[in-house]
C-alpha cells in the first residue's frame, strides 16, 4: 500500500508514462513499431531485465545493492545448459539445480553482509568474481563438451511458447510482477522490507527479524538473476560468456527509473517493471533510428539522467 502514497505513485506513473511515450515515438519514426508483434517482442526483451530488476529491487529497497547479478545470471545460463544437456528428461533437475545455485549465491551474499558485516557493494562485487571464477574454471572457459548444449525444449517453450497470443515468458513475468507486488504491499515480509529500508535499527528494536529478512532478500535476488539466465538460454538457445554483463547496470537503471530510492525504503516493483520496459523501448527506438552503438550508449545515459533530474532528486532537510 506504500505505493499508493502520492509522490511514490507519481514516480511509478511517470515510469509507465515514459514507456508509453517511447512506444508512441517509435511508432512515429517507424510505422509498425507499436504493432502487437513488435510490442510483444520488446516486452519479451524487457522481461529479462525486469526479472533481474525484481531481485535488484528487493535489495535496493533495504538500501543494499547486488553487483553479483552478471555472473550469477551467466553461471545459471551455463549450468542450465550443461546440467540438462538439452534433454527434457533432465530439465526439472537442471532447473532446481540452477535456481538453487542462484539462491545459494544470494544466500551467501546476505549471510556475509548480515553476519560478517561486509558492505553490500564489496560482498556482491566479490561474489561476482567468485561465481565468475567458478563458472569459467569449471566449464574450462566454455570449452567443456556439455557447454555447447542447448536449452531443453521445455525451457525454450517457457520463453517462446505462445498462450493467448502472448509469449509464455511474458505471462511468467506478469505472474512475477503480481507476486512481487503483492508480497511488497500486503505481507509481513513486505512490511519488514520497507521497515529495514527506512531504519534497520528501529525495525530490529520493533522485533523485525532483520537478519533473516535481509538474507532472504539477497537469496531472492540471486534466484531472480538465475531465473533470468535460464530464460535467456531458452530465448537464445545456448549459453555464452559475458551474457550477464549488460544486466547489472540495466537492472539498477530500471529500478531507479521506476522510482525506487537507491537509499532504500521507498519505491515499488511496479515502478521497476515499468522502468525495465522504458529502457528496452528506448533501445528499440534508437535501433529503429539506425543509431550506432556509441549513440545508443550516450543517449541511454542522457535519458537516465534526464529522468533522474525530473523526479529522482534527494529531498531537502
Amino acid at each position: 500500500m506504500n505505493a499508493v502514497l502520492s509522490p511514490a505513485a507519481l514516480r511509478i506513473l511517470a515510469a509507465y508514462g515514459a514507456a508509453v511515450l517511447l512506444f508512441v515515438l517509435g511508432a512515429l519514426i517507424h510505422p509498425g513499431f507499436a504493432s502487437f508483434p513488435s510490442v510483444s517482442a520488446i516486452l519479451l526483451i524487457a522481461s529479462f531485465v525486469g526479472l533481474v530488476a525484481a531481485g535488484q529491487c528487493f535489495v535496493i529497497l533495504i538500501g543494499g545493492i547486488d553487483l553479483s547479478v552478471p555472473w550469477v545470471l551467466n553461471a545459471a545460463a551455463i549450468l542450465i545448459a550443461t546440467s540438462s544437456l538439452g534433454e527434457n528428461s533432465r530439465a526439472l533437475y537442471a532447473l532446481a539445480l540452477t535456481l538453487g545455485m542462484g539462491a545459494l549465491a544470494g544466500l551467501a551474499n546476505g549471510a556475509a553482509i548480515v553476519w560478517l558485516g561486509v558492505p553490500a557493494v564489496v560482498m556482491t562485487l566479490a561474489m561476482n568474481g567468485i561465481v565468475e571464477g567458478l563458472a569459467l574454471g569449471l566449464s574450462g572457459g566454455m570449452t567443456c563438451a556439455a557447454c555447447a548444449s542447448y536449452a531443453p525444449p521445455l525451457v525454450r517453450a517457457a520463453v517462446h511458447g505462445v498462450f493467448l497470443g502472448v509469449p509464455a515468458a511474458l505471462w511468467l513475468w506478469l505472474a512475477v510482477i503480481l507476486l512481487v507486488s503483492f508480497v511488497l504491499s500486503f505481507t509481513r515480509f513486505g512490511r519488514a522490507t520497507y521497515a529495514i529500508g527506512n531504519n534497520s535499527r528501529a525495525a530490529f528494536l520493533a522485533g523485525v527479524n532483520v537478519s533473516l529478512t535481509t538474507i532472504s532478500l539477497y537469496a531472492l535476488s540471486g534466484l531472480f538473476a538465475a531465473l533470468a539466465g535460464i530464460l535467456l538460454v531458452g530465448f537464445g538457445g545456448q549459453a555464452s560468456l559475458g551474457m550477464g554483463a549488460p544486466y547489472l547496470f540495466q537492472s539498477i537503471a530500471a529500478v531507479v527509473i521506476g522510482g525506487v530510492s537507491i537509499l532504500g525504503g521507498r519505491g515499488h516493483y511496479l515502478g521497476a517493471a515499468a522502468g525495465a520496459v522504458s529502457l528496452t523501448a528506448l533501445v528499440s527506438v534508437l535501433l529503429a533510428l539506425n543509431m550506432p552503438e556509441y549513440g545508443r550508449s550516450i543517449i541511454y545515459g542522457v535519458v537516465i539522467l534526464a529522468l533522474l533530474l525530473l523526479y529522482g532528486r534527494e529531498q531537502r532537510e
Partner: peptide, 26 residues
Amino acid sequence: GLLLPLPVRDNLTLPILSRLSIGGVI
C-alpha cells in the same frame, strides 16, 4: 524508534504483524 516516512499504521503494528497475519498475509 520510528520509521519516519512510513504511515502511522505501519509504525503501530510492526511488532504484532505475526498476530495480524495469516500465512504471512496481513
